[in-house]
Design a protein around this nucleic acid. Structure first.
Lengths: 122, 122
DNA sequence: ACGCTAGTACGGTAACCATCGTAGTACGGC
DNA sequence: GCCGTACTACGATGGTTACCGTACTAGCGT
């Protein structure tokens, strides 16, 4: 056992251990980018099961771990659920504006794709 | 043969084919990030041989191709050399502020690492 | 105690990627 | 025409990744 909130401990990089390359790599996957976008939209701690992803549960676990180990999210146990939160403060301190800009870029791309899809549907 | 400047043609994604995930993936590698930083600093078209990278020439070719196919750089032949230019305009149009923010983040991280190195040297 | 729900751990697979060396092509200068 | 420089193509290799299924653990409610 470790300390307070829950017996199970989760490895997180400290703020100064977060590497830009790892953050970019974490965000470079479509599934993970979608997770991060969802977390940014709902501005609350979300459990893993909140997300409706096109992969199995074990793959989901994998993606959340990549995000956590890259320093993008913080995960804490809360009973049987695992709550996920964006590390906005740490990322903002290290790489000002990065997260916001990437999220805006993702939104812009999604909007363009929606428009293209609507055009194709006609 | 193809058209104007040179016989050899190089595949580039058009602006609307550029995908955020591919851009982030291209920037997520230390060698490629360094290339992009160098290109942003010297604001001119640089030949591949300008860069003094810790990898062999064939690996260098590989990295430049990833950057080109991701839509981050534009490459044109000029005689025996190959000139590389950042696609700042296209990236800015698609993902406003992204390139600048990533470059600033890379600078910030480099500064922190220099400081850490100086501290360790004492 | 039992079962339900949430998530993990493990083992495997196929694809991808960074890296290299060697051999080759394109162009410019002599 | 020949040589050097710049870069490419190809093939190999080892490491990483995305994905899955199955079996497991942790906590909650009854």
């Amino acid at each position: 056992m470790t300390t307070a909130t829950s017996p199970r401990a989760l490895e997180h990089p400290t703020r100064d251990q977060i590497r830009l390359e790892a953050v970019l790599h974490a965000l470079a996957d479509p599934v993970r980018l979608r997770i991060v976008r969802d977390m940014a939209r709902e501005r609350a701690e979300l459990s893993c099961s909140y997300f409706d992803l096109p992969v199995t549960k074990s793959t989901t676990t994998h993606h959340f771990r990549v995000l956590r180990e890259g320093g993008v999210i913080r995960q804490t146990y809360r009973g049987t659920a695992k709550l996920n939160a964006l590390r906005e403060d740490d990322l903002e301190a290290l790489f000002p504006g990065l997260l916001v800009t990437v999220l805006a870029a993702a939104d812009a791309q999604a909007t363009r794709e929606d428009a293209a899809g609507a055009r194709a549907d006609r």
